[in-house]
């Protein structure tokens, strides 16, 4: 299966969904006015990956900023991964936030409260 790769823009993050290694990366900022357009190809990719996933799948969320339009789309992405989690693949979320960025750490906790997937909160110097 093909990887999904997108370069970052002023309002959208870098995307690298690697089917071979079961690693899904979102990095940068996600602040488009209409995030559905941006997230649609990501959903489609995850749907087809879910048919033949690796035994371990990790989504690495390294976001500096995201808007509320994206927050709902991220939740839907996590929900797809939550449904996939089980016998075929064990899914984990790595949630990165910059040191002192309490808002981003809290945003990770928001998802953790809703989504039944193991979350690893990782503080780093700079995204």
């Amino acid at each position: 299966m093909e990887n999904l790769q997108m370069i970052s823009s002023a309002k959208t993050p870098e995307v690298l969904f690697d089917a071979e290694n079961g690693k899904l990366l979102l990095k940068g900022r996600s602040i488009p006015e209409n995030s559905i357009e941006f997230y649609k190809p990501l959903y489609d990719w995850v749907d087809s990956y879910a048919g033949q996933p690796k035994s371990e799948t990790t989504i690495e969320v390294m976001l500096e900023y995201f808007n509320t339009s994206s927050s709902k789309c991220l939740l839907d992405l996590f929900k797809k991964l939550e449904r996939m989690n089980g016998d075929a693949s064990s899914v984990a979320v790595h949630w990165y936030y910059e040191e002192d960025d309490e808002d981003m750490a809290e945003a990770g906790e928001d998802y953790q409260a809703i989504i039944k997937l193991p979350f690893k909160m990782i503080e780093i110097n700079e995204i």
Binding site: E33, N34, S35, I36, E37, T68, S69, S71, K72, D110
Partner: peptide
């Protein structure tokens, strides 16, 4: 915080991309 989480989980994104959050 609770209100945000509840709204996030129950909201749907409109065709304009707004989630009411």
């Amino acid at each position: 915080k609770n209100y945000y989480q509840t709204s996030l989980n129950s909201s749907t994104v409109s065709s304009k991309g707004t989630a009411g959050l």
